[in-house]
């Protein structure tokens, strides 16, 4: 599997062809539509990251080695960005996720969607994805050392 950095480079390349804003947004909408549906049982209050503009539901689990994410949003552009975030971080080890530098969002010109003023839940989603990996990493090191 590609590394987190390689996946980010792929996305940057993919977006490089989309010069017009409307093309970028069309692509995000497509990605949002293709995002696998979150299991309804995970669309609960505990998994809700509230934003004043749009909301995000995030569920994470691990197979003992790798972290897997599913997520959803009520806004399709938000969902498109979720799809990118999941594509980059899903299936990686907790240590890789916690160290990941997510600067591809800036490089493809979508930084404003992750700005706190947008209040769309995405900033906290990225944090939440990392927190989950961090928590897993902490519990792993505890198990190994005991």
């Amino acid at each position: 599997m590609e590394s987190i950095a390689e996946k980010q480079a792929d996305i940057v390349e993919e977006f490089a062809f989309l010069e017009d804003w409307m093309d970028k947004y069309e692509h995000l909408i497509e990605l949002g539509k293709e995002l696998p549906l979150i299991d309804e049982q995970y669309k609960k209050e505990d998994n809700l990251i509230k934003g004043c503009q749009s909301q995000v539901w995030l569920h994470a689990e691990n197979d003992g080695e790798h972290v897997h994410y599913t997520a959803d949003s009520d806004a399709i552009l938000t969902k498109g960005i979720i799809a990118l975030l999941i594509r980059v971080l899903d299936g990686h080890k907790p240590s890789e996720i916690t160290q990941a530098d997510m600067d591809f969002i800036d490089q493809i010109g979508l930084k404003e969607h992750l700005s706190p003023t947008r209040a769309n839940g995405l900033v906290n989603m990225v944090k939440q994805m990392k927190y989950y990996a961090l928590a897993l990493q902490a519990s792993e090191s505890k198990t190994t050392s005991s």
Partner: peptide
Amino acid sequence: IHPYDAGAILDKL
């Protein structure tokens, strides 16, 4: 149509 989506597109127009 979610207001956030429409608002973000309008911004770019």
